[in-house]
Structures are given as C-alpha cells and as structure tokens.
Amino acid sequence: MTDISYSSPKTIDEAVAAMVAAKGAGRILAGGTDLLVQLRAGFVKPGSIIVDIKKIAEMTSIEDKGGGSFKVGAAVTGMQLHDHPTFKKAWPGVLEAINLIGSKQIQGRASAGGNLCNASPAADSVPALVAAGATVTVQGPKGRREVAVEKIPAGPGRMTLEPGEIVVSFTLPARPAGSSDAYLRLIPRTEMDIAVVGCGVNLTMKGGICTAARVGLGAVAPTVLLVEAAAKALIGSKLDANALEAAAAACRAVCKPIDDKRGTIVYRTKIAGVLLKRATAIAAERAAKN
C-alpha cells in the first residue's frame, strides 16, 4: 500500500513530462511541508507519483532584476528569501507574509509556490503576492504562460492549472520610489496558527498622496481576493481617516466568509476592515522611507 513513486527531474521540461505521464496522479514536491503531512495522514492515495522539483535551478533561484523587480523560483524557501541581500528592502510585505508560513523549522523548507498551490484561502503568502501585483510563470505541455497570481486558486484545494502544468516562478514588478507593502494576519495565538483573516497592502506615495494601491485579502472567501474597491478608496487620498474607513468598508463588503473553527462570519468581516487600516499604516510608513 506504499506504492508511491518518486522522481527528481533536473529540468522543467522533464518535470512537466513526468506530470503529464502521471495522468492526474502527479504531486509536486517542493519543501513537502504540506505534502508529507498529507502522505502521513493517508490523504495522498496509493499510486501517486511524486515529482520533486528542488533539483531544478530555475525553480530554486532568486533574481534581482532591478528597480524592485524580482523573479523568485516557486521552490525558493522562506529562509532563502529572508537571507537575500536586497529582497527585504524591496518587498517587506511579501517577505513577512512568506516568513509567516509555519515555524522557523518549516521556513527552511516551505516555499511560496507550495503555499499558492496548496490552494488554501488562508495561505499567508498569497494576499501579499496579490497586493504586490505578482505574476506567475506557468509551464505545461503547451508551453509557458504568465498569469496574475490571483487567477491561480479556484477554491479551497483547487487550482486553475491545466493538467500537467507547473508553477515555475513569481515575478514581482518594478515600482517607483515611495512604494512599499505590508502584510498582517490575525491569529488567536502568536504563532503556529492559520490566518483567520490575512491582508496585504501595496502602496505608492507621492507628496503625501497615495498614487497607486493594491489590496489582497485572505481567509474571507473561497479564494484570496484582490479588493479593487479598497485600492480605489485609497488612491488619490492622503490615507486620512475617511479614506481608510472607505477602504475598510470595501474590504468588509467583499467578504464571503464561513463560520468555522477558526472564526465567525461577523468576526472575520470586522477584522478584514481592521487589518486593512493597520496594514495600510505600516505600508505607508515604509513607503515614506523608500
């Protein structure tokens, strides 16, 4: 009953071929912080074909493209990003979100690619990547394509990837001076927990005015949301109380959460607004220094 096969291709083409050959039974192994737990718990059915992507250079490297733009391999670990010399200054919100995945030990293994492909609405890195305007390079049997990160999840545990497609890397865009980002999540404890609500905010400030903004909201709907109405409320404002409240109201308005063991509908909806305001304040403070 342990007839699970394993391969570790050296190229993306080989990995895609292995996934195609697996006919839907393929499972990508990056850090394994979700997959190995599922294997132990018996959620991964016999006959699975494990495709380990950690030996593929493009998927494990970080490229600083200048001007704040980065290309981050899907299997790059949280610790690799944490220790990168320039990433933190450029994308502190994305980094803090990725570094919230699991404990310190998990950070040595866990990747943003895995976090995205686990397709949990509560994934910490995803709202920050959505706010950042990250795109995802996907490769499959029909070649490569670029997709906005928010288009990847389809619902809890489900993705929009075509059969055989693999998430290869994330591209973070260049941004003007005066830009920064922040991510906040609410958990009942201080660590080792899953977001009740997560909120990423990415801002550009010029002369005290917000000239660009993106807001990502997690754990309040079946997928992570890009909240364009909240961004709209912030853009053109001085991030005054009225603008913040309008943006918070926009966040509350898009929430379609559920009552479950991690929080109530009322609570999650309220917290979406609270986190929007707090994350905006942090992002603005950081932007003022950039």
Binding site: L186, P188, V196, E245, A248, R252, G263, T264, V266, Y267, K270, G273, V274, L276, K277
Partner: peptide, 19 residues
C-alpha cells in the same frame, strides 16, 4: 474569552464603528 467572543462582547457593550 476567545478573540471572536471578546470582540463581540466589546462591540455589544460599546456600539461604535466596528473598525
């Protein structure tokens, strides 16, 4: 006295803008 319960009790006791 978990965050959702305490938050609801505080909001019930002090009606104000939730955020």
């Amino acid at each position: 006295m978990s965050p959702p319960r305490l938050s609801a009790a505080l909001d019930a006791a002090t009606p104000r803008m939730a955020a």
